[in-house]
Design a protein around this nucleic acid. Structure first.
Lengths: 140, 140
DNA sequence: AAATCAATCACCCGAAAGGATGATTCTCAG
DNA sequence: CTGAGAATCATCCTTTCGGGTGATTGATTT
């Protein structure tokens, strides 16, 4: 950001210098005032385009792969924190047994959680649950 | 695109008109030439920024959720078209039976394809396969 | 013509996942 | 204090998956 502003200022100064140079060398000649306005217009338009792109590119790129949890839908579907936790682990490709190990609970508990999840997400397989949860922005 | 160019032309014409107006009304007064150059510079910089954003916003937004199949990795892993097809259907949450119905083949065939896929993707569960395939840009 | 590979199908078996139901404990709001 | 909701665990039973193996067909390559 600071660098961009610095570069912009530099380019602006260079342009002003160029203009002054042109002004004092050819202003008395046959070229009209409109010609110089045209040059200024073109140069600064280009500068503006470049500056505009510089200033927004990073924001847009960073705004793209951003993930914000949709808590309203989470509540609307009545999904608890623990269930969401299980859902995330399911989406990472773990088996119920592995999830149980990771959360220090019984595999039966994970089965219960996943069953409840399937009901709330209105699906019947874990792959569908993952797909649906991503649609609903419940998981990245 | 065409509309943007049209609007740009319109704005440009308006600016030129404004300049002419200024030029013929105040050029004889006490304001210096640099002042007018400054106005032109500022106006066209703003115009350039605006035009630059207009012209690239759509491209960037469209470039975000864009998916390009990574064919090199497909070949590197030796995944055939049919296998990729099965992989896509797996990722959409279908069971082997449903995939078989959709492709008009036996469930056993789907099992063979999926088994081969798991070996090639070095995974052991379909949820992992989906996750991995997305990492490798094999599926959206 | 022989070899290779994708695609197809089959069968077996064990592991994982899903459905249904019931029970216990804990916390928190009414 | 009581009831609701959560998290936990269990049992039983069915379906789906995954691993292994083998076989056939058709197209492409050598």
């Amino acid at each position: 950001m600071k660098r961009t502003i610095f570069l912009y200022s530099l380019a602006l100064a260079a342009l002003v210098f160029l203009l002054k140079f042109l002004e004092y060398r050819f202003i008395i000649r046959d070229l009209s005032l409109e010609f110089y306005f045209g040059i200024v217009a073109i140069l600064f338009t280009a500068l503006g385009i470049w500056a505009g792109l510089k200033l927004t590119r990073k924001k847009i790129i960073l705004a793209g792969p951003e993930f914000i949890l949709n808590e309203s839908k989470l509540q609307k579907l009545g999904i608890s924190k623990r269930e969401l936790e299980v859902l995330e682990l399911i989406s990472s490709g773990l088996s119920n047994q592995q999830i149980a190990d990771k959360l220090f609970v019984s595999p039966n508990t994970i089965k219960t959680h996943s069953s409840n999840l399937f009901i709330k997400l209105e699906v019947s397989r874990r792959t569908q649950a993952v797909q649906r949860a991503k649609e609903l922005k419940l998981i990245p």
